[in-house]
Amino acid sequence: MYHKTLSYRIFSIFNNVFLTIISVLCLLPMYHLLMVSMSSSAPANAGLVTFWPIGFTLEAYAQTFKNANFLASLWVSVQRTIIGTGLALIVNTIAAYALSKETRVFRARNIYLWYFVFTMLFTGGLIPGYILILKLGLMNNLMALILPGLVAVFNIILLLNFFRGVPKDLEEAAFIDGAGQFRTFFSIYLPLSMPVIATVSLFIMVGHWNAYFDGMIYMKDAAKLPLASFMQTIIVKADMSSLDAAAIASLSQRTIRASQIFISALPILLVYPFLQRFFVTGIVVGAVKE
């Protein structure tokens, strides 16, 4: 009945308005960037563009898609995201399935779990990891961006907690019908675990798309930089005045920079609404244990 009182109604209106403003503030920077990218360069450089394009033009996008370095980087990012996510899903889900078995069935389970979890607690750090990639000869190789982070222990835990919630009767029925572990995994567990798999895929894909640091230190050729690393060099280094004159001239084009930032964020913006409903259920279910 409280929501019928006058004071609660007034509160409710203010609350709705306040929360709407806050949530719009989460989108506004992206929106402003989009508007800058679609304006002519003179008003954009003068800082006149706010929430509407001035002198609407898509010239900046045309320029960006003519830039060979940008396109090469885009392709590297697409490759690492697809290959990286595919491999990671296979390796992590299969491992998580085995680790979701009870200790009675899989005696080494706890040893493996601690073996994995320890890597979450302690790492060798940046330098030994860098030297390892150097020694393995993976410098300038796409695999340097995929293999080191392939096993994500957090994802394994999320998956195994979900797998444990699958009713044991299903598994026993499958065994009685003569299915092996792999068959049970692929035919029973995978189809039942789509929400958590969607969640984990989202995390891995977003992680790959956004990762810039590994590309920056392991990729020596400009043509092999993933998009995030490419963006990092043009956005951030531009601010540190460590570039040659030609690069500075092209960077002064505020609209081009804005269009590149927007394109690099676009896949995230597109994939996000579809997977959003999965990740909330996935996180919540993965976190709830018996």
Binding site: P29, H32, N210, A228, I235, R257, A265, I268
Partner: peptide, 12 residues
């Protein structure tokens, strides 16, 4: 969104 993207926006 990555910090690279967001720094681009913030710097701007």
């Amino acid at each position: 969104l990555s910090w690279v993207t967001l720094s681009g926006i913030l710097i701007d």
